[in-house]
Amino acid sequence: MEHLSNKHTRPLSPNIQIYRPQLTSVLSIVNRITGVFLSACAVVLVVWLIAAASGREAYSRFHDCIASWPGQFFLLASTFAFFLHLCGGIRHLVWDTVRGFELRQIYISGWIVVATSVVLTLACWLASLLIARQV
C-alpha cells in the first residue's frame, strides 16, 4: 500500500523555481499571464457594452470609473498586456509553421515582441491623448 500513498507526494515536473529566469521562459509565462489578465479585461469589455446599452447614466458611471487613476492604470496595463499577448501570439503562430527555432532567432523574435509591445503601447496612449485633446 506504500506505493499508493506515495502517488500523491511525488514532485511534479518541471521544478520551475530551480531555473534562472531567461527571456525565453519569461516570455512563455508572460504570454499565459497576459492571457489570463486579458480574460479579466474581456469581462470589463462586456460590462462596458452593457453599461452603454443601459443608458447614459450607467455609461457615465462606467466612464468615471475608467477615468479615475486606478481605472487609467488598469487601462494602461491592459494596453500593454494586449500588445504583449498579440505580438507573443503572432510569434507562436510563426513557430507553428516550424520557422524561427534557431536559438539566435528565438532571442531576436523575443526582444522584438518586448520592444514592439512597449512602442505600440506608448504610441496608442500618445495618439489617444492627442485625439482626446482635439475633441
Binding site: R56, S60, C124, A127, S128, I131, A132, Q134, V135
Partner: peptide, 10 residues
C-alpha cells in the same frame, strides 16, 4: 476604434 473615440461623448 477606442483610440479614435478618445474623449468622445455618449
Amino acid at each position: 476604434s477606442l483610440i479614435a473615440h478618445s474623449g468622445s461623448n455618449y
